[in-house]
Design a protein around this nucleic acid. Sequence first.
DNA 1: GCCAACGTTGGC
DNA 2: GCCAACGTTGGC
Length: 161
Amino acid sequence: MADGRHYWLMKSEPEVFSIDDLARSPKGTTSWDGVRNYQARNFMRAMKVGDQVLFYHSNANPPAVAGVAEVVKTAYPDATQFDKRDTHYDPASNPDEPRWDMVDIRFIRKFVAPLSLDLLRAQAGLKGMELLRKGSRLSVQPVRAAEWNEVIRLAEVQADS
DNA sequence: GCCAACGTTGGC
DNA sequence: GCCAACGTTGGC
């Protein structure tokens, strides 16, 4: 992108942490801890401050893009990997060279109506989107600019109806 | 380096 | 709760 801003999608189970939880967080900001997948981690490491994020509700009814957030802090070590009592504890991670990172994201907006997976699948312009690929499980994934624009357009169409 | 076993994700 | 589609682990 000319302005250097990139687009991403991050998944969260709303029962665990929803977009409303994000909105209610201090300064609308949270650290995205718990990612334990290398591909997802690498995408977080590529994030820049100001990058835009689609906040996706997985394991929801219906699964849907719920709104928008933005990156406010680039990747830094995820403390939960060293916490024995945390479910994301990783005994194999070396404190001198932490294996897992997180970023901070801030709430931007919640869509008037969440954009369901079904709705997204029905869009010709979103054919190649990683989220819609069969068997896709990546919890942090890149979004192409054209896909981003299409999703935002859909959100506006929903808001007007 | 192969691959079977196992664990996880996430839609349905 | 089921199960497809992964990713990881560890024996060999």
